[in-house]
């Protein structure tokens, strides 16, 4: 019965969309609570029990704010920029698998994949779509007709382009081992154990690759300690200085969803995706959630612990240390694959 599968597939699309929206709400709350914890404060505690409804209050506040448009701004591009950012953020998640094929406890006649679209070049599609998100930022910076925005936009663009190279090379070393471009294949490659207890995750064979991937991921998503585009002390709020109301909310949403996507891709590539002990395959998505949450917590933790780098230090680090390291890692990996015949 194909029609049922189609309906379920559409439901999956909606579900993923809602999940991503909710995840950014959770992230807003988590970020404030974790920050408060690290700084020995209470954090939000007024709206709802333990301040749980704070993100929704934030969204409502933003919706009712006035939509400002700076004089001399390029209207079309000014409105287009946040849309590009948010669209790219959502679209990148479309090819990320987050669980093994399941029939939902026998409810469906045939198992469906927990993934919006299974593309056989999925890894590159994620890469391509994230490389589009730089346009949202650059255009926001340019069209605002403000020097803070322009500098923020230029900085973040050069940062994203620089770190994209190491990001891609770290990704390539995993592809060499897995011998596939499909994220599902890569995850399935990581099931099972070595010596009975070491999980066959790629992070075990690719620790350097994982490190490079996560560092570049933080730089790609413009998060602290690499959040120069938004460096408050020098650039006010970087590329979204002039944005208010829902347009601002869209940039915010894009930032959080990008974090979720980077964490999800890292989980699929390095941390074994939905494979883990104790749970049956059909409940693998729970493991997936646990792993993503751990990575996201790591993101927040880092933001409130490390001071911001200087811009030139970041570029030096990216081009002179991270990129050569990534190339070396890829070479060693390729040599290893050939020698061991894995």
């Amino acid at each position: 019965m194909p029609s049922l599968t189609v309906i379920v597939q559409l439901g999956l699309v909606v579900a993923v969309f809602v999940m991503l929206m909710l995840s950014s709400a959770v992230m807003v709350y988590a970020e404030r609570k974790v920050a408060a914890f690290i700084q020995q404060r209470e954090g939000p505690n007024r709206v709802g029990p333990k301040g749980l409804f704070q993100p929704f209050a934030d969204v409502i506040k933003l919706m009712f704010k006035e939509e400002l448009r700076p004089g001399g701004a390029d209207t079309v591009l000014f409105l287009l920029a946040p849309v590009i950012s948010a669209t790219a953020a959502f679209a990148a998640f479309a090819v990320v698998p987050f669980g093994a094929a399941t029939t939902f406890f026998g409810l469906l006649p045939e198992p469906i994949k927990l993934q919006v679209a299974d593309v056989n070049v999925a890894v590159l599609v994620v890469f391509a779509i994230t490389s589009m998100s730089v346009y949202g930022i650059v255009l926001a910076g340019w069209s605002s007709n403000s020097k803070y925005s322009l500098l923020g936009g230029l900085r973040s663009a050069s940062q994203m382009i620089s770190y994209e190279l190491s990001y891609g090379l770290a990704l390539a070393s995993v592809l060499v081992i897995a011998n596939s471009l499909s994220l599902t294949d890569i995850v399935n490659h990581q099931s099972g154990y070595w010596l009975g207890f070491i999980p066959k995750w790629f992070v075990v064979v690719q620790p350097v690759g994982f490190l490079i991937f996560m560092i570049s991921g933080v730089a790609e998503t413009n998060r602290a300690p690499f959040d120069f585009p938004e460096a408050e002390q020098e650039l006010v709020a970087g590329y979204h200085t002039e944005y208010s109301s829902m347009a601002f909310a869209m940039f915010f949403l894009a930032e959080y969803i990008n974090m979720v996507t980077v964490s999800a891709v890292a989980t699929d590539l390095f941390l074994g995706g939905w494979h883990g002990p104790f749970l049956p395959e059909s409940l693998g998505w729970i493991w997936f959630l646990v792993k993503i949450s751990a990575l996201l917590f790591f993101y927040i933790w880092m933001r409130w612990t490390l001071p911001r780098y200087r811009y030139d230090q970041l570029m030096q680090f990216g081009w002179k240390i991270l990129l050569p390291l990534a190339v070396l890692n890829l070479l060693v990996t390729a040599a290893g694959v050939i020698l061991l015949g894995a």
Partner: peptide, 10 residues
């Protein structure tokens, strides 16, 4: 995909 990554993205 290469078209998007290299042309549009870089």
């Amino acid at each position: 995909v290469i078209q998007i990554i290299i042309y549009a993205g870089a």
